[in-house]
Every structure is written in C-alpha cells, then in structure tokens.
C-alpha cells in the first residue's frame, strides 16, 4: 500500500539519524523517547496543557501539583518538527524574514489559480530568486475571513502550492521552496469589506539564507 510506504519513508530517516546521534549505548531509551516518529502518537512532549480537571476528578481530588516544566524550547521544537522527508526538514517559519524584493500576489474569491497580472509579479519574483540563489523562500497562502476556518486552511494551501508550482515552472528549484497555509488566521487588513478581503487573499513571500 503506497500510504503505508509513505509512512515508513518518514520514519526511516529519523531512525537512521537516531542511530547516528545515539552513539553512546548507555542512553538508548532516552534518545528514543526524545525523538519519536513525528507522526506516531507517542508521548511527544510539547507544551503541557493547563490542566482543567473538573473538581471531582482524580487529579483535582489529589490536589495534583503542576507537572515538571516542559522540555526546554529547542528540545520541544525538535519533537514537533515535521518529518525529515526526502530533501530536508523545512526550516521553521520564524527563521524566514520579510523582504522587499518579493511582491505579494492576490487571488479571486474562493479561487487558487494565478491571474495573468499576478503571473507577471511572479515572473519578477522568479527573476530575483534566480540571482539571489543563496536564499530559500517560504510561501504563505492566505484567505479572507469569509468561509470556514478548516476550508480556508485547505484553500490557503492550494494558493501557496499554485504559487510554488508557478515559480518551479519558471526554473526555481522546488527544494528551495517551503509552503505554509495560514488560512484566514493572519489577515493583513482587518476591516470587513471587499477592499480588505481582496488584500487578504494573497500569497506572501519570506526568505532565509541557505
């Protein structure tokens, strides 16, 4: 089954990596525990949720104390990092920076195709990326606030992907590009009118030195 294989592809490099990193046989358990397969529902430590036991639950009755603080941020981040799939683990979004060299493109309501005018903007973006070959690029897909959060996450993903595909067709290596959908969650303009909505339906670019 292809899905099954896909799952293994995610896990195997991690296991290999783990074997390399472990080295010291004294702490295999610790290492394994701190690096579970990203997609496995193991005890992946991230941030503890503030417990909200209903009085009457065992936790509350026992006057449970706060758990040990979560693992320090970098360690926690490592466990939530996306799977180290084929090319490389994508850098975290916060590692990318704004740039004036790459211009946003915009989309029609509920659409994810690239309009001719926006294709010209992407051509210019591609030209800049070609001469700035040391830069990785993050493409954010965004939606306006209309529609459901879940549908807009999918729509933003399609916009980012369509934008990526266009850049690749213009000769930018796919391995330089990471995409992320923010759905309707990060509007650039806050008012509830078409003027704002049309600004929010966008693909936005950030860069990071390789």
């Amino acid at each position: 089954m292809p899905q099954r294989r896909g799952h293994l592809v995610l896990v195997l490099p991690l296991l290999v990596l783990t074997l390399f990193l472990v080295g010291c046989p004294k702490r295999p358990a610790t290492t394994a525990a701190s690096a579970p397969p990203p997609t496995a529902p193991g005890p992946a430590a991230t941030a503890p949720a503030p417990a909200t036991a209903p009085s009457g639950s065992a936790a509350a009755a026992a006057g449970a104390t706060r758990p040990a603080p979560a693992a320090p941020a970098p360690a926690a981040a490592a466990t939530t990092r996306p799977a180290p799939a084929a090319p490389a683990t994508p850098p975290r979004p916060v590692e990318f920076a704004e740039t004036a060299n790459l211009k946003d493109i915009h989309f029609e309501f509920d659409k994810y195709d690239i309009r001719p005018g926006d294709a010209k903007i992407l051509d210019a973006n591609a030209a800049w990326l070609k001469q700035a070959a040391s830069n990785l690029v993050l493409i954010e897909g965004h939606c306006d606030e209309r529609g459901t959060n879940e549908y807009n996450l999918a729509l933003g993903e399609r916009r980012a992907k369509a934008t990526m595909n266009y850049l690749v067709s213009q000769g930018i290596q796919a391995s330089r590009i990471t995409i992320i959908s923010y759905g309707e969650e990060r509007p650039s303009c806050a008012e509830k009118n078409e003027g704002c909505w049309s600004k929010n339906r966008r693909a936005h670019f950030l860069v990071k030195a390789r």
Binding site: A44, A49, A51, S57, A59
Partner: peptide
C-alpha cells in the same frame, strides 16, 4: 482536558 498530561502530536 482533565488530566495533567502533555499535548501529544
């Protein structure tokens, strides 16, 4: 929601 358990991926 009701236990002191870390968030799970």
């Amino acid at each position: 929601a009701f236990e002191r358990r870390p968030v799970q991926l």
